[in-house]
Each structure stands twice: as C-alpha cells, then as structure tokens.
C-alpha cells in the first residue's frame, strides 16, 4: 500500500551526540562562564588592542610616570618604565595564548595522525609504535623542550631573515611570530605523547566497529577509512584533551620565560611580565599580582572548560 501524498510519518526530530553534549555543557555554569572568560580574553588581546581609537601601546615609555597606580588613563597603572600595564598584559596574553593554542594544535596534528594510524593498523606495528611513545614519555620533558628550542632557534632566525629580506614580508609581523616559533615547535614536538595514546585507544576501539568493517568490505582505502570514518568519530576525546593541554602549555611557556629560556624581548608574555614583577615585589606588588591574576584565571578557565567538555561528551565519566 502506498502512503498517501503529504502524509509522511512524522518522526520526532533526533538529537545528535553533539547536540546532547552541547545541551549538557550549557547546563554547566562553571564551564559556560569559563568559555565566556576565554572568549573575552581572546577578543581583548587579539582584536580590541588593534581597534582604531584604542590607545593601548605596550611600548611607549613615560619615565616621569613610573609605578603609577590605577587611573583613568592607565587602568592598571604603569610599570617600571612608565608603560601602560593593561596594554602590556593584553599584548602578553596574546603571546601566551598563541603559544598555548599553537603548541596544542601541533600536538593534535602529530598525536592524531600517529595515534590513529597505530590504532587502525593494530598488531605488532601498534605495539612497536606505542612502545616508542612509552619510551619518549619517560624522558624529562622540559629539559628536552629547552634544548630543542635552543637548537632550532638559530635556524628559525635565518628563515625569518630570509622572509624579511628576500620575500619582503613585514619585519614587524615576521619577528613577532618567529620569536615564538621555536618554543611552539619544541613544546609540540614532545607534547603529543599523551594525545597519541588517547587517540590510539579510541581508534583501536572504533576500528573494530561494524560500520568500519562495512566500509572495509565495500572496498574503501585505508586512508579514507582512517580520515573519513574513524577520526570524525573520535573527535570528542581529541577536543577534550586538547582543551586540557592548552593551559599546561601556557604554564610551560611561562615557566620557561621566567627562567629566561622562553619568550625573548621584544615580545613579552605573561611569564616574562611575572618575572619582571617579581623583581619589584617589595616596592610595587601590583606588577606581580595583575599578570599572575590574568594568568591563573585563564588557566583555571581552560581547566574548567575541559572538565565540563569531558562531562558533557561522556556523562558516565563525570564525578558523582
């Protein structure tokens, strides 16, 4: 019997995993607040500082107005050279966030490719690949990051000189990023191990699923199985874990900058601001407190958002 025209059976609209997760995330006030905090921080330090009419210059010195306290002109006062401190913090945040997010993206790239290949192939190849990860995990992470950053710094300087002089790129822009690149690359190069493990476990479980077997029996190639069918279905652990790595990378960046092996002048990150602030601890405490506050709140926000995402995507794992 043919169904009458126009009387299609009405299904209740299904809700996808992502919609469910979004709904649960929206109910988590802490995670929502964290999300807004992070967005605000990003907008402030990446967009607002460049808007016309905003007079935030982290480099203009005013030696007659050093260590000023908060005022209408300088919301957070001025530093040891009379520079506007709010501007310095926002520009510093730009660097810190760039390092955290950039390094996290590198770890996602390496970890996902490595982990999904290992998980998909399985067997002895996977054993060997994961043994390598285990071995690398036992190495002292920060020491290798310090040494790798130091080792590639010169090559990147040469490359940026090439960009400026041969390709005629804007020196301002090139120097801004080439200064960060060694640190981002170094953190990324050794930071992907946990991501690799997580993706490997998820990919191994997913590649045993019926729909992947169905795809295989339809004659799909390995690459399309991995990139079209397995990776899209293990996105949630990847998103959760990469949110949680960003704060730890920001922390590494700040630690390295504090001991003088991270971000170098003319750039300054929250780590370098905290370091400078620590020098004037007894005379001008705000110089330490403000950057530490922004730094700590951002770290907290990323952690809360990551926890919230985990609870939203995987309600079973949430703490009772």
């Amino acid at each position: 019997m043919k169904p009458k025209e126009g009387s299609a059976i009405e299904f209740e609209k299904g809700s996808s995993l992502w919609n469910d997760a979004l709904l649960r995330l929206r109910n988590n006030k802490l995670a929502v607040a964290s999300f807004f905090f992070i967005t605000t921080m990003c907008v402030l330090s990446f967009i607002v500082v460049y808007l016309p009419g905003i007079k935030l210059d982290p480099n203009s010195q005013d030696l007659s107005n050093r260590f000023a306290s908060s005022s209408v002109d300088h919301w957070l006062g001025t530093d040891q050279l009379g520079r506007d401190f709010l501007a310095r913090i926002l520009y510093g945040g730009q660097i810190s966030l760039l390092v955290g997010i950039g390094a996290s993206m590198i770890t996602v790239l390496i970890g996902v490719v490595y982990g999904s290949i290992a998980g998909y192939i399985g067997g002895r190849t996977r054993d060997i690949m994961m043994r390598v990860v285990d071995g690398m995990m036992a190495l002292p992470f920060l020491i290798l990051v310090i040494l790798l950053r130091d080792a590639i710094e010169n090559n990147i300087k040469e490359a940026s000189d090439h960009m400026i002089h041969v390709w005629n790129w804007s020196p301002d822009l090139v120097l801004r990023f080439s200064n960060l690149a060694p640190l981002i690359l170094a953190i990324g190069a050794f930071g992907w191990l946990t991501m690799g493990r997580i993706v490997e476990a998820a990919a191994a479980a997913t590649s045993k699923m019926e729909y992947v077997q169905a795809g295989r029996s339809l004659g799909l190639g390995h690459l399309s199985l991995i990139f079209k069918h397995i990776i899209p279905n293990i996105l949630s652990p990847i998103i959760i874990y990469s949110t949680l790595t960003i704060p730890s990378f920001i922390l590494y960046e700040a630690t390295l900058s504090f001991i003088g092996l991270g971000i170098e002048p003319p750039n300054s990150s929250w780590g370098t601001l905290i370091k400078e602030g620590a020098n004037y601890l007894e005379t001008a405490l705000p110089l330490l407190v403000w950057p530490s506050l922004f730094f700590t709140l951002t770290l907290l926000a990323f952690n809360f958002l990551g926890d919230g995402l985990r609870d939203a995507f995987d309600p079973k794992s949430s703490k009772s």
């Binding site: 704060p247 700040a254 630690t255 905290i274 602030g277 620590a278 330490l288 700590t296 907290l300 952690n303």
Partner: peptide, 13 residues
C-alpha cells in the same frame, strides 16, 4: 584547584 593553577614562579616570590 588554586594550588594547581598558581605556578611556582608566582608562589615562590
């Protein structure tokens, strides 16, 4: 949570 997020280089000084 605060203890985790306040880094050594802030708590130290």
């Amino acid at each position: 949570m605060l203890g985790i997020c306040i880094p050594v280089f802030v708590s130290g000084p």
